[in-house]
């Protein structure tokens, strides 16, 4: 299977794999969220991604923009917590950026993810070091762009992005949260890995699993 581009079927496989990973890690995500939040991140993400997989199975999209927008809207209406509007915005903006295409190369997928991240930032006003999903996705996309500039394909870019996301995720542990429910805890939020950064890292894990298989 070619990994120089990602097809519509692979995007769907990616989302399905993301669903499987959040399901596998549901109790871990909830455990992280119970330390610094309201203990619903695992169940919220599983519910949202189950709804996504069901929706895109029932109404097969014929282009990347339609697929990603449908994913975003489904998350907005099914998640309930802050990850609904945040992940929802990520996918909606990705869709707008991707346009009505049937496949994306590494540069185009990177640009779509970047547009998604910018949407998340506009929505949640998060900055680097606030202990949020931004702290995993932003370094991942920086690594992605650098790899693409060196000629990487989707699989290679996804692989370095995952490594950067994991590093960014782990670096949230000592941080004091400045956004979201965890920010109510102030100093007490330090010493725990951020659940949003953890689920965001799974997004890149799912991509690696999909395009490398």
């Amino acid at each position: 299977m070619s990994t120089s581009t990602i097809s519509l079927d692979q995007l769907i496989a990616w989302l399905s794999r993301f669903r499987d990973l959040v399901t596998e890690k549901q109790s871990y995500l909830t455990e992280l969220d119970s330390a610094i939040g309201d203990a619903d991140h695992g169940s919220n993400m599983v519910r949202g991604m189950n709804a996504v997989v069901e929706k895109i199975g029932a109404e097969p999209a014929t282009a990347a923009d339609a697929l990603l927008k449908s994913v975003g809207m489904t998350l907005v209406t099914s998640v309930g917590g802050a990850s609904g509007p945040l992940y929802g915005t990520l996918f909606l903006r990705m869709g707008v950026n991707a346009g009505p295409v049937a496949e994306l190369d590494a540069a185009a997928l990177g640009a779509a993810l970047r547009a998604g991240l910018e949407g998340v930032v506009a929505r949640g006003k998060a900055e680097a070091g606030d202990k949020t999903m931004f702290d995993a996705i932003a370094p991942a996309l920086d690594a992605w762009d650098a790899a693409v500039a060196d000629g990487a394909d989707v699989a290679a870019a996804a692989s370095v992005a995952l490594a950067a996301a994991e590093k960014g995720r782990d670096a949230t542990e000592p941080l004091v949260a400045r956004k979201g429910r965890a920010s109510y805890l102030g100093e007490r939020s330090a010493g725990h890995i951020d659940p949003g950064a953890t689920s965001s890292t799974l997004l890149f894990q799912a991509l690696v699993d999909t395009v490398s298989s």
Partner: peptide, 14 residues
């Protein structure tokens, strides 16, 4: 108020 089917949460579409 609430999201989906009786879930504690919010929904931008609602």
């Amino acid at each position: 108020a609430g999201a989906g089917d009786g879930i504690i949460g919010t929904d931008a579409v609602k």
